[in-house]
Design a protein around this nucleic acid. Structure first.
Lengths: 265, 265
DNA sequence: ATTCGCGCTTGAACGCGTTCAAGCGATGAC
DNA sequence: GTCATCGCTTGAACGCGTTCAAGCGCGAAT
């Protein structure tokens, strides 16, 4: 039912496919067709997506009409809707592509250091760089992403693969640092999700940021990361054990379930 | 009912008068006409807004068409657009009304206690109660609110009056508690805005909450408020002076400017 | 009394996202 | 060869938000 793998596969010949499974949880899957049955089908789908993404970047989301996409791709409007059940699902292409590019770029750039604070800042700055070309119409993107009913919401089930990729990156941010071994194991397990939430906040800030080159957001990251790192570091001291315990409970009971991790463990 | 005209009158700040055709001023001004010139005008405006809000609640936002609003109100579609330049601006009525009702209800309910944690929890719970009738279509509301370009965004200039009201409420939450005198004066000055942001996070959680009566959000408030209170309380100890100083700087430099308070002080 | 100006009002028309009944073409069965 | 099946394709049509040129009505000016 789900097409995330397919969507991912269309861009950048990567290998993250194979997640289709078919065991659909929600009866109503949104977004597009199920399994493609032919090669031609997949080609058409990719053509439409590529065309849409190009036009989005050229003209912006709202000014790009479905008719224009269809015409430019040389297909009919109805055909576009055969593959993407709504215009907004064409955005998923950006979402997936960005997630992938970000993870790759961040891994690359933080490889040289084991300092947690530095690694975290690199991971966030890398996102800003990766997303920069899309800042122009990020507003529209964000708008639909903010809809809890939309599968484009970063919290939705449909976004799970991309979210998992991002969380995994932050796990590496932490695990690759000299801080990780010094921390409570349980905390190390929880932190990646919290750091992902941190990224979501940065994204929120970025979307609203009107300064040139989103310089304000970059500065926000530079200033807030060391503080975050220091707070995390403080958790090592015995005095904070009670408050850390409460914080962990809060995360486990109210944050993780929201982003698709069952509270039961 | 009567507060509607009042709430809309609140924005009669200044220069954005003159018909929208005025100068090519920065972007779109407000969502509606400037100064009403006649009594009848104001009546028609109120009628349309009331009708819209009633239909929104009866059928939901998307299922309520502008034509239906106009018909039900006994005016033409064009007339509705004369007063509200887009459908989304009709939502502002909710926004304003809720802000007002929330502040009143919260003040009332927290009057009996001076315990900071309790007062804060009441303020947040009060919001959940006030907003409960609108949870159904809050998704749509939130969607447009998330658009940085929209004047409906809680961070926008146009939302300043409502935001100021809310921040003022949180100032009272703090000032009316026994905690306030014990805190650094500068912190007392900053905290109301941070608490408002806290409310925004709760709202975010609430929008995505699908549990009956948004019980999960309520539990989230019950659990997180004591922690927040404890963290704030910790700021009193000398050991944390450096980190508190950094936090204050972060707030002043990156949070306040975002919500319309000039960084210059 | 007549005219003028201007707020207010109208509803047809436009553009866009989306739907759907109908058609096409390759593949396989007989 | 004929026919049915089914994945893929079509484009006219629908509903909705929004726009706009045109009109209406009422007080002020003449």
């Amino acid at each position: 039912m789900d097409d995330l793998a397919a969507t991912n596969g269309t861009n950048t010949a990567n290998g993250t496919n194979g997640v289709d499974g078919g065991a659909g949880s929600p009866a109503e899957s949104r977004g597009s067709r199920a399994q493609p049955k032919t090669d031609k089908s997949e080609q058409t789908r990719a053509l439409i997506l590529e065309t849409a993404m190009r036009l989005f970047q050229e003209r912006g989301y709202e000014k790009t009409t479905m008719r224009a996409i269809a015409t430019e791709a040389g297909v009919s409007v109805g055909n576009a809707y055969y593959y993407f059940s709504a215009k907004e699902f064409l955005i998923q292409g950006f979402y997936d592509r960005m997630t992938y590019e970000h993870a790759a770029d961040a891994r690359n750039r933080m490889a040289h250091t084991r300092d947690f604070s530095e690694r975290l800042e690199i991971a966030l700055a890398s996102w800003l760089d990766t997303a920069a070309p899309y800042h122009e119409f990020s507003a529209q993107f964000f708008r639909t992403a903010a809809d809890p009913n939309s599968s484009l919401s970063p919290f939705s089930n449909e976004s799970h693969p991309a979210r998992a990729t991002a969380v995994e990156l932050f796990r590496e941010v932490l695990q690759g640092s000299e801080l990780a071994p010094k921390l409570d194991a349980e905390l190390v397990d929880l932190l990646p999700d919290v750091l992902w939430l941190y990224l979501m906040i940065v994204v929120l800030y970025w979307v609203f940021d009107r300064t040139p080159d989103t310089e304000r957001t970059r500065e926000f990251v530079r200033r807030s990361v060391p503080m975050a790192a220091r707070v995390i570091n403080l958790s090592r001291y015995r005095v904070f054990r009670p408050i850390v315990r409460d914080a962990k409970g809060l995360i486990q009971d109210f944050i993780l379930p929201t982003i698709g991790k069952t509270a039961v463990k």
